[in-house]
């Protein structure tokens, strides 16, 4: 890689993945390194914020070094800019990445830019599908978020609906914990559900027919009650029926949003988008409705830094660099980033 290529280093530490990536112009991913902390948090059945902060601080130097090396970024400076997630996420975790990114940008005398993690997820689909046609509906589902977003173009977002209580990924974690399936819950439920009967239990589909908002707390309670009623129920059947209920609601609402907005396609994003049933249902629904199904690779669905670098590349070009006194915002919303976009 020549020293002149304006590479962007992306850094992501908002939750429990420590990640760094190098992206070349045109959102060409040269390297993407993700160190998962899943085993750090597994015995607690959920992310422990203080442990996450400590692990990020320990892992970030080697993860960044590996991302630069794999990309062949060995110039002086090795990259032309540093992009970093500044929110939303866990405060103590965000600050590790943000502080490290500012320091690298000072050391290399290159600009740095704070990136909205949610916008990063939207850009993840672009990395896998460079020729998108607008408008698109994005179903962003993760451990922290469940939202339907209308994307009218790069940087132009409209929030159609979101969860009123638990995020979809949180529901997976809670149910997996209740069923003793381990952590993280998403892959565990996915695996066990493959051998179960999804029609064994008729779990509620909250608000499936109306609006674009979601609610998953009642579903979790229904799973607990069903198992209490039938202690001998097959775990695969419970898992499959639960997963079926979540996916039903997600796909029904997303599909309705695509039709109502006249969108050209439906795009999946976020960690829960790695779920096999959700991926299959979205593809089937889009084929039936004659719209594009944009289902990024599993690696692009879960938290990674390539999506942060890609969003940062775009942000730098359209809003310029961030100031050195930028703070982290654990509750940063997507609407905020919309307000700063030059139209």
């Amino acid at each position: 890689m020549s020293d002149q290529a304006p590479l962007v280093l992306g850094i992501e530490t908002s939750c429990d993945e420590t990640a760094a990536a190098v992206v070349a112009p045109g959102r060409d991913v040269l390297s993407s390194v993700v160190a998962s902390q899943a085993d750090v948090h597994a015995r607690f059945g959920g992310v422990v914020p203080e442990l996450a902060g400590r692990a990020h601080l320990e892992l970030l130097v080697p993860v960044i070094a590996e991302a630069l090396e794999r990309a062949g970024a060995d110039g002086h400076p090795p990259v032309a800019a540093v992009a970093v997630t500044s929110g939303p996420g866990l405060m103590g975790s965000l600050l590790v990445g943000l502080s490290h990114a500012k320091a690298l940008s000072m050391a290399w005398a290159v600009p740095f830019v704070g990136v909205n993690h949610l916008e990063g997820h939207l850009f993840a689909s672009l990395l896998d599908h460079p020729d998108l046609e607008w408008p698109l509906v994005v179903l962003l589902v993760s451990g922290g978020h469940t939202m339907l977003v209308l994307v009218e173009g790069l940087g132009r977002y409209r929030l159609l609906g979101q969860t009123l209580d638990d995020a979809a990924g949180e529901a997976f974690d809670k149910v997996a914990r209740f069923l003793g399936l381990g952590y993280p819950g998403g892959p565990a439920v996915d695996r066990v559900a493959a051998g179960g009967d999804p029609t064994a239990f008729a779990f509620p589909r909250a608000m499936a027919a109306q609006g674009y908002d979601f609610s998953f707390s009642g579903l979790k309670t229904a799973v607990v009650r069903a198992v209490e009623r039938e202690p001998l129920a097959s775990t695969p059947d419970v898992a499959a029926s639960f997963q079926e209920a979540v996916v039903d609601v997600l796909v029904a609402k997303a599909r309705r949003a695509v039709a109502a907005t006249g969108s050209r396609g439906l795009c999946l994003a976020g960690g829960v988008a790695a779920n096999s049933l959700l991926r299959a249902r979205v593809e089937a629904a889009c084929a039936e409705d004659g719209v594009a199904a944009l289902v990024p690779s599993r690696a692009m669905c879960t938290d990674n830094a390539a999506m942060i670098a890609a969003a940062g590349q775009w942000r730098l070009a359209h809003g310029g660099p961030s100031p050195l006194d930028l703070g982290a915002d654990p509750n940063l919303g997507l609407a905020l980033s919309q307000a700063t976009v030059k139209q």
């Binding site: 601080l57 970030l60 130097v61 960044i64 502080s99 490290h100 690298l104 000072m106 050391a107």
Partner: peptide, 9 residues
């Protein structure tokens, strides 16, 4: 993190 970032860079 700031010290590590400066030293790494």
């Amino acid at each position: 993190a700031t010290a590590k970032g400066l030293a790494q860079g």
